[in-house]
């Protein structure tokens, strides 16, 4: 039963992703790709849990790799996105909203 519940989570998340992005102006496509790149950096949490429960040397090594890569994904994704979005400033016509 629990497995089916997770499949519902999959389905609803997929619809959410589609809806959230469907009304994005073209000018934000690159920052948005970068921003979603940052969000899947949450894989870092998975890497932490994996390394935190590693038992053998191999598991520890692979878990460590996962943490390093996940942290790089999250940190790099954040910096790049934030830099890009920091550059957008409004002119007079449309205002800042």
């Amino acid at each position: 039963m629990e497995g089916i519940v997770y499949l519902y989570v999959f389905m609803l998340a997929a619809f959410t992703g589609y809806e959230v992005i469907s009304r994005v102006p073209v000018i934000l496509h690159t920052p948005l790709m970068s921003g979603s790149n940052f969000i899947h950096g949450v894989v870092l949490v998975g890497g932490m849990v994996t390394l935190g429960h590693a038992e053998t040397g191999t598991q520890m090594l692979l878990g460590f790799v996962a943490v390093v890569l996940g942290a790089a994904n999250a940190a790099g994704g954040y910096v790049v996105t934030e830099r890009m979005l920091g550059m957008f400033k409004a002119g007079n016509r449309k205002g800042g909203a």
Binding site: F10, A13, Y18, V20, L32, S36, H40, V42, V45
Partner: peptide, 23 residues
Amino acid sequence: GYVLQIPALIVAGIVVGASGTLL
């Protein structure tokens, strides 16, 4: 996220998967 049973990973990952596919 499913394998590790962490729903936050499932949600974040699949949201990005869907929006990325649309993009």
